[in-house]
């Protein structure tokens, strides 16, 4: 697992992709930070986080798109699957690789918090909770997108489907508002990434929100393993 994690990270940072993702993330987060905090003299990072949701929806598919699709295209999955390691280790290695890459992006918020420290005392509860929320939200999207990447041999298809799924996840609340059935509304608002994420941005650490994102990660890691199991057996 560690070996795969190490290889994933070296693949991101030995090519341009890791730096481009970092640059885009830092650029937009910096822009929102300037707009909402520095320009208005506000110490609240909450609007910055809310706006970064959209950016993440596009960046995470870029991080994960070649995760398994490229392995399948280059036939290197044969080396992974015939090595004496379990599928769980392979998938977790891939997941953690993308997650660490994403965490490097999110880490920039610690720098912004430091900047706020110069002017006033930041609301640490809100900021740390939101960073945790960002990590969990990103982790859930990464797990979904790695699953998508395991379904295809094409990076482009993986990226496009992942972005589509991400946007759908983003719009779940809007979908909930147009349905009539109370039952559906209940379901949709339970699985809504937005509503599960929002509590974090208020500085509320609700266990149910944490469990929700961790469950999404667990389910999609499991499904990814099943994709490879199925390929072996069919």
């Amino acid at each position: 697992m560690l070996a795969i994690l190490k290889r994933e990270l070296s693949a991101y940072f030995n090519s341009a992709i890791g730096y481009i993702v970092l640059a885009v993330f830092y650029f937009f987060s910096g822009m929102y930070f300037y707009l909402y905090c520095l320009y208005y003299g506000s110490a609240s990072l909450t609007p910055v986080f809310a706006n970064m949701f959209m950016i993440i929806l596009f960046l995470i598919p870029i991080i994960t798109m070649k995760s398994f699709s490229e392995e399948k295209r280059q036939k290197t999955d044969q080396a992974l699957l015939t090595a004496p390691i379990s599928l769980f280790e392979v998938v977790m290695g891939k997941f953690l690789g993308a997650f660490v890459m994403y965490s490097c992006c999110v880490a920039i918020f610690l720098l912004y918090t430091l900047v706020i420290c110069f002017f006033t005392t930041p609301d640490w509860a809100v900021i740390l909770c939101t960073i945790l929320g960002m990590l969990l939200l990103g982790g859930a999207l990464i797990a979904i997108d790695i699953f998508v990447s395991a379904l295809t041999e094409s990076q482009v298809i993986a990226a496009v489907i992942s972005i589509g799924v991400g946007l759908l996840v983003y719009m779940i609340d809007s979908l909930a508002s147009i349905t009539q059935s109370q039952f559906l509304i209940n379901i949709l608002s339970t699985v809504s990434f937005n509503s599960n994420f929002n509590n974090f941005t208020y500085g509320i650490l609700d266990l149910s929100n944490v469990v929700f994102f961790v469950s999404v990660i667990a389910i999609f890691v499991f499904l990814t393993i099943r994709v490879f199991e199925k390929k072996r057996w069919s």
């Binding site: 560690l2 070996a3 290889r7 070296s10 693949a11 030995n14 280059q74 036939k75 080396a79 992974l80």
Partner: peptide
């Protein structure tokens, strides 16, 4: 099953690990 973006040595070290 080769990773084109790795050097020969890095690749063999990776395979050694897995």
């Amino acid at each position: 099953p080769l990773y084109p973006d790795m050097t020969v040595k890095a690749y063999l070290e990776f395979m050694y690990d897995i």
